[in-house]
Write a protein that binds this DNA or RNA. Structure first.
Lengths: 180, 180
DNA sequence: TGGCTCATGTAATCTGTTACATGATTCT
DNA sequence: AGAATCATGTAACAGATTACATGAGCCA
């Protein structure tokens, strides 16, 4: 592989679970991975082509229900490259929280503005939490002794844990702002 | 202001607290803001110049201890622009967690690899947590009834809450991987 | 028939980092 | 004396998004 961008490994990872189209990859990003990673078509489709050229995935052009599709499948080489990346230590975990930025500078505005940001953040978190909880409970019901399933479950539970802590903080922070 | 990048507001925000040099701004990024935002010299210095050209901050070139410095100060216009941004709703809170990515695809590798990632993540979190806790306790000791202080404290507490939840998750996740 | 979803892709743009260049001062 | 820190800045590059273009099938 010429370059070493995350998007390569994300796609290889998704294809290691299941063969799919670029469109479906994008869907997974917006559902399963949305909590901790994102990508747009503008990075997905070109990457699929370079991965195919490198022989890490294969293209299968077909027609389903009259719709043209390209189904991508990971190759042996692809698996090896993915595993190589998985074995390497994590380089960076990043948070870019506009909410915290606005809160950090919130003294400039007064408490009401900050309270509004916290409220709106809290309600966003609550929605995400509901979504994640439903994912967790459906994964728990499957009760597969499959290791892949366990990994999904652990990441989803991470999200639940995070968001629960967020909500606690929201309540406490709002209280304190009201007191002042 | 010609453009609408976050870096503009981050700098205005920091300067709303205190006048300082570009070098000091970078330091704040790496200490106070490191938990939820980051920036490099390559974005800070050019932004300082455009902000000065727009009249949102002023330059004061001086010499301290024989060192050349440029101290930047926010203007009235700068305050207004900052307030305008603070009043607007938050557009995006983002997480880019390589650790979760590697864990999500960790089924490919086996439990040992995932356990190693969790361990290493846990120890990183513990370091950050210690740092944040010391910030929180020093902020609590100041006991300023100042609203700006309260805002610092709330963001720091957010970090503590997050990281505590992370550590709980690390312990639980590791247990479950060991069981399997 | 009109709007939504499925499906693929590209060009322009944006935003930021990395690596380098430079030079003074302070600490050990 | 040498290393680390203070201090400012730029050019090349990286990595990604946005907006657009295109077109077919599905549902009401």
């Amino acid at each position: 592989m010429a370059n070493d961008r995350h998007i390569n490994y994300v796609i290889l990872g998704l294809l290691s679970h299941e063969s799919m189209t670029g469109y479906e990859i994008k869907k997974r990003m917006d559902t399963s991975l949305r909590f901790f990673w994102g990508a747009s078509y503008g990075s997905i489709y070109p990457t699929l082509n370079t991965l195919a050229q490198s022989g890490l995935i294969t293209k299968y052009e077909t027609k389903e229900n009259g719709r043209d599709k390209i189904i991508y499948t990971i190759t042996e080489d692809g698996h090896e490259v993915l595993k190589g990346w998985l074995r390497e230590p994590v380089v960076k975990d990043e948070l870019r929280y506009e909410t915290l930025l606005k809160l950090f500078f919130g003294g400039e505005l007064g408490c009401d503005g900050s309270l509004e940001h916290i409220r709106s953040y809290g309600s966003k978190v609550q929605d995400e939490l509901a979504l994640l909880r439903s994912i967790v409970s459906s994964l728990e019901q499957v009760k597969a002794n499959d290791i892949t399933h366990l990994h999904y479950l652990l990441t989803a539970r991470f999200g639940v844990k995070m968001y629960e802590a967020c909500l606690e903080w929201c309540a406490e922070a709002a209280d304190e702002l009201k007191k002042s």
